[in-house]
Design a binder for these strands. Structure first.
Lengths: 219, 219
DNA sequence: CATATCCGAAACTTGTCAGTTTCGTATATA
DNA sequence: TATATACGAAACTGACAAGTTTCGGATATG
C-alpha cells in the first residue's frame, strides 16, 4: 500500500500511482461511486467472508460492472484492504466522549444500542477477513485502525480521566484494561459465537474492570 | 457430526456410520495412519489456513494418496473438523494442575515455555480456521472443546480453590475471570499479531486478574 | 464533431481445486 | 487360490471465480 492516508475515497487507485494526476482526455471517472462500491464490499464481506466473496457479488450489489471495479482496484485483495481502511465508524466520537464524573458512569455511557449494532457489524467483518489477515500486513493495520483502535483509545481516555480525578490509582495498567472489553467482545463473537449485548458488557464492567481498579460495582 | 466422542481416531468415518462394523472382505483399512493424516492436516491448516489448504497438500505431507483421505472423510470440511476435534493438547493436564497454595503461584505455574509454544500453534490453527467457522457450528464446537475449554476449565479450578481457602471473595465472577487470559491471548495473536510471551501473561495476571479479585501483585 | 475515456452488462479465458476414477500392487477373508 | 478391499500415484472431470475483453452508449476534452 502507499503511504497515503486512508481518506474517504480509496487510498491506492491505479493511475494516481504516478503522483500528480495530469488532466486526461475523455470521460472522467465518477468517484462518487467509490463509497458505494466499498460499502457493498463490506456488506458482502460481513455476509460471506473474504474467500466466499466474489467480485461479481460486489459489483452486482453496487449495481456496477466488474470492469469498473478493476479500473479502480488492481485486485480483490486491494479492494478489501481499501474497504476496511475506509470503513467509517458511527459508534464513537473521540472528541465527544461521555464525562459523567465517575468511571463506571462513563463506561456504561459507552454502551448504546447503536454502538452495539455497529460493533456487531464490525466483528462480522473482522470474522470475514480473518483468513486473509495472516497473509496481509496491510490488512492487519487497516483492521486495527478501523475497528480496534477507536474503542481502545476511547477507553484509554476514560481511564486517564479517572486517574486525574483520583478515582483510581495512577499506577494501574491502563493499556491492558483498555483492551479488556474489545478483546473479550471479539472473542465472544468470533469464537464463542454468543451475542455481545448490554448484559454482557455491564457484567464485564462490574465483574472485572471496576474490581481490577479497586472499585466496587455498588453505585 | 455424530455424537460419538472424539477419540484419538476419527469420529465419523464412512461405513462405520451404520453402527456395528460387520467383518468385511479384503484388506483392512490401516487406522494407524489416521493420526498422521490428521496431524498433517493441522500442520497445513496452521500454515495456510482453511481456504489455502488443499487436499493434495495434506496427502503429500502425510505421504498418502488423495483417495485414501476420501475413503475416510467425506469432504475437506469433515476432515478439518475431525482434525481439530482430535487435536491433542500437550499443555494442560487437568488432573494434575499446579497447587502452590496461592492463586498467583498457581497462575504463574501454568506458564511454561512448553505451554506457550503449544498455545501458539493452537492459535495459528484457530486463525486458519476462522474463515470457515462462521459456516460450521460443528467446527465451533470442535475449536471450543479442543482449544478454549481446557484452559478456561483449568482457570476455573484454580479460582475455585482460591475461593475455598478464603484467598479471594466467593462472589467474584469466576466465569469471566477464567476467560480473560484465553480471550486476550487470542486477541493478541489473531488481531494484534503480537506474541503471547511470558511477560505478557505475567503482566496480565498482575495488572488485571489479581487486582480484579482484590489481590495486590506484591509478593 | 472527433477522440479518448468512462459506464454497466455480459462473454470469454485461465487456473485452481474438490472430488472421482483408474492402475498396479499389497493384504485380508473364504 | 479367488475375491474383495486397501494402498499410493496419477490422470481425469466439473465447477467456480479472478481477471480480461468486448459491446453499445454516455460524457468529457480539444
Amino acid at each position: 500500500m502507499t503511504q497515503s492516508s486512508p481518506s474517504h475515497h480509496p487510498a491506492a487507485t491505479i493511475e494516481e500511482h504516478a503522483g500528480a494526476e495530469q488532466p486526461r482526455l475523455g470521460r472522467k471517472r465518477d468517484h462518487t461511486r467509490d463509497p458505494e462500491i466499498l460499502d457493498a464490499a463490506l456488506d458482502v464481506l460481513a455476509e460471506t467472508g473474504y474467500d466466499g466473496m466474489t467480485i461479481d457479488m460486489v459489483a452486482a450489489r453496487a449495481r456496477a460492472g466488474k470492469a469498473t471495479l478493476y479500473r479502480r482496484w488492481a485486485s480483490k485483495g486491494e479492494l478489501v484492504v481499501d474497504a476496511v481502511a475506509c470503513m467509517k465508524s458511527n459508534d464513537i466520537d473521540p472528541d465527544n466522549l461521555p464525562d459523567t464524573g465517575t468511571l463506571r458512569g462513563d463506561l456504561l455511557a459507552m454502551i448504546k444500542p447503536h454502538s452495539i449494532e455497529d460493533g456487531k457489524r464490525k466483528l462480522q467483518i473482522m470474522t470475514g477477513v480473518m483468513s486473509m489477515i495472516s497473509r496481509s500486513p496491510e490488512l492487519v493495520n487497516a483492521v486495527n485502525a478501523a475497528i480496534i483502535d477507536p474503542r481502545a483509545a476511547a477507553n484509554r481516555v476514560l481511564f486517564a480521566r479517572a486517574i486525574e480525578r483520583g478515582e483510581i490509582p495512577a499506577d494501574c495498567d491502563v493499556e491492558s484494561l483498555s483492551l479488556i472489553s474489545p478483546s473479550m467482545a471479539a472473542y465472544r463473537v468470533l469464537i464463542l459465537r454468543k451475542p455481545v449485548d448490554r448484559a454482557f458488557l455491564v457484567n464485564l464492567i462490574d465483574g472485572v474492570i471496576l474490581p481490577a481498579v479497586g472499585l466496587r460495582a455498588s453505585k
